[in-house]
Design a protein around this nucleic acid. Structure first.
Lengths: 203, 203, 203, 203
DNA sequence: AATGAATGAGGCTTCATTCAT
DNA sequence: GATGAATGAAGCCTCATTCAT
């Protein structure tokens, strides 16, 4: 009988190795052999677990967004107060990045760069930024809507504001990636929170 | 001296052709022959004007950010009122994108994706997002600082807020690129303006 | 202005180089670099003229069978006498191989080996042995039929005999390929002619 | 000594599995894992019985030709009459293929394709078509010679006719493989017999 | 003895760049 | 100056074979 290998665990190991290298060098510049080396295996071995580089790319996408989604759901589920929800949302995003050193965020650049392109690409079934962000924005819009209904928030255009919030979070993340030193992500998130809430709260 | 001007003009022609194709297909997927075809010249001719693909990439970067910088300087220079300056800033950014169909923005994805990486890369001397954004943020911070000094704005953390503003603009742009249909960039810029100003204005 | 190259001529050059190497090493064992070397060009250059190895394979097939078909048509068209037609047919086939050293025949082995397989293969649109031989056999059957009608041949089963004749020719060719020394193709073709005609001629 | 027999049996099992897959997909396209799967064993297990894929190929060759030789010997040994011998020869060949569905014949394409190549290959010590067919042709030549001596056959060139007969049989087989539906192998073998015998019999 | 996980040599193909015309 | 034909480095992937269990 042969070695017993937890196929699922090893696949995940490779995925994480890939994510790391992707973050460092970018998806395009990452060669299969780089991933293999990072994972401490031979390049041929990768193909025992993944059919192609593209498939790894797709799985990395899922890894990131499933993770993100889960974090968000958790952050929002803790409370029923729209104000609290927004706070949690922003904080979770910020903390998440601080802790993961933005590795995944760095990869997201590649998803964007890739996902933004030609709609006819096969990858778009997998890397569907449109869908991901739609859901994300809807989530926030709901919160805002809730807040307005309960009189906590002013009567703003919820969809625009949701887009802004999402954009601001992503944008802040970008800024932080570009230069961790000049940005205090924690402070930024607080200011964002204060300013925004200040701007929409019914005083 | 009849050729000197030609040279420069043709170089710019190639650059614009490159920018267009970069926007459509992404930098990595763009082949030299694509640029040549778009510019209506032979593949080899490009090398009479550019030493390499990388050099074109670098020049495209400059094209975009020089242009952007110029727009911003103009927008800010029109008035001395910090409030107006912010308004112009946001509007110019939004309009700029609407008019150029976000072509340049799409390329910026590639700059980010590239520029975000390993600091030891040669390209980073040219594609210096850190520098570009630093200046950009400093510009805004100055405005905010001014506003606070003149009592128009509350006493917020200017650097954080500058980062947020820059981030929010970039983020909104991303959202718009991902799906032009679900975002009304004009409305978003207005809401952003309202909310932010509302949040920081001394009532 | 660049070098002037007769694209069509060079494509044919590559094709012949490929055919030669195919004959020597077999299609599967032939590497693109082998063809390139034989053609005296770099391996990348092949792709300026052919999209893939498979395409070269397909063109080689056409090269062989178009050539063969033409030879046969010529051989048959020279006369109206069924007996003469058969004679020409056999002689042309034999001579053709003698002159071309059976290079193409050697490649046909690979077509057979390949073409005989799974009917669902894409290649079968190109390497359609069934079709090629059907036409060939039909051609012969017609001659036989003619001969019977005019009382030159006995009343044999024309389709079976056509199959035999085609088979015998191919088979003789195989034998000759396997060992040129032990077979005198000219004598064999004469004996085949004599025996067969003796077998079917009316007295 | 309980394992000795097992070893041999299992080796044969693998060989038959290989032969089956070879026939279906062709030798080159057959992967070791295909053979293993067909044999119902693990991929690594094959190497307990065979040193390499090539060795399996060689053994398959022997399997086929030993079998064929045996059949022929049997067919010829039944009678002393040259005419009967030829009849048996042709019938056995035809029937053999009908019964085995031409599986082995399909593999022979690969032997030919392989065996026809460069004489310096190591495999040629094993896959020696030249030798195999020499013996085969000699066998037939002897029969013909016998027939001529006893006055049953005309005075033909025995070696040429032997080559033709062998070729015709192989060729008919090829035709049948290419398209079983349009060829009635039984009828063909009869026609072949009639025509040939008619051509050489002393009436 | 049996297995399948691991491997890397090797093949096909792409494309930035060179260069002869 | 302009061109596109030529090129080979480099990357993805396959698969026969090895080997630890």
């Amino acid at each position: 009988m042969p070695k017993k290998v937890d196929k699922k665990a090893k696949k995940l190991e490779i995925l994480h190795a890939a994510a790391k290298v992707f973050a460092e060098k970018g998806v395009v510049k990452t060669k299969m052999v780089d991933i293999a080396t990072e994972a401490g295996i031979g390049k041929g071995t990768i193909y025992e677990y993944y059919r192609s580089k593209e498939e790894i790319f797709a799985d990395t996408f899922r890894l990131i967004f499933d993770n993100m989604e889960q974090q968000l759901a958790e952050a929002i589920g803790k409370t029923d107060d729209p104000l609290e929800k927004l706070k949690n949302l922003i904080q979770v995003t910020a903390i998440e990045f601080l802790e993961h050193s933005g590795d995944l965020a760095r990869i997201m650049m590649d998803f964007w760069a890739e996902g933004v392109r030609s709609k006819n690409d096969e990858l778009l079934n997998i890397i569907n930024l449109e869908l991901v962000y739609s859901e994300y924005k809807l989530l926030i819009a709901d919160i805002l809507h809730d807040g307005i209904k309960t009189g906590v928030f002013k009567n703003v255009d919820v969809h625009s504001l949701a887009a802004i919030l999402v954009g601001a979070l992503d944008g802040a993340m970008l800024q932080w990636i570009i230069n961790k030193d000049t940005i205090d992500l924690k402070k930024v998130s607080e200011v964002l929170l204060d300013t925004l809430l200040n701007g929409i709260k019914v005083k």
